[in-house]
C-alpha cells in the first residue's frame, strides 16, 4: 500500500512539473470520462448484485417487504 501511495505522489509530482496546460486538460478528459464510466459500471454491478442477493433471500423463504409498483 505504501508503495502505491509513493507511486501516486511521484506521478502527481511528475504531472505538476512536466505537462503543459493543454496536456493537463487532456489528462482530465481521458481519466475523467473513463472514471465516470468505471464508477457507473460499479454502480451497475451493485444493482445487479443486490437484486441477486435479495432474490436469494426470497427463494429461501426470508422474503423481504416488497413494494408493489
Amino acid at each position: 500500500m505504501s508503495y502505491l501511495l509513493s507511486l501516486l505522489s511521484l506521478v502527481s509530482l511528475a504531472v505538476e512539473s512536466s505537462y503543459t496546460l493543454n496536456e493537463k486538460g487532456l489528462i482530465v478528459v481521458a481519466i475523467g470520462l473513463a472514471g465516470v464510466f468505471i464508477i457507473l459500471l460499479l454502480f451497475f454491478a451493485t444493482i445487479i448484485l443486490i437484486q441477486k442477493i435479495v432474490g436469494l433471500f426470497d427463494k429461501t423463504g426470508k422474503k423481504p417487504d416488497e413494494v408493489k409498483e
Binding site: I39, T46, I50, V54, P64, D65, E66, V67, K68
Partner: peptide, 22 residues
C-alpha cells in the same frame, strides 16, 4: 416489483463505493 431492501441497500453501498473511489 422491486424489493424494499434493494432500495435501502443501494444508497448505502453507492455512498461507500463513491466515497472510497472518488
Amino acid at each position: 416489483s422491486v424489493p424494499k431492501l434493494v432500495k435501502i441497500l443501494f444508497p448505502i453501498i453507492v455512498t461507500i463505493i463513491a466515497g472510497v473511489l472518488v
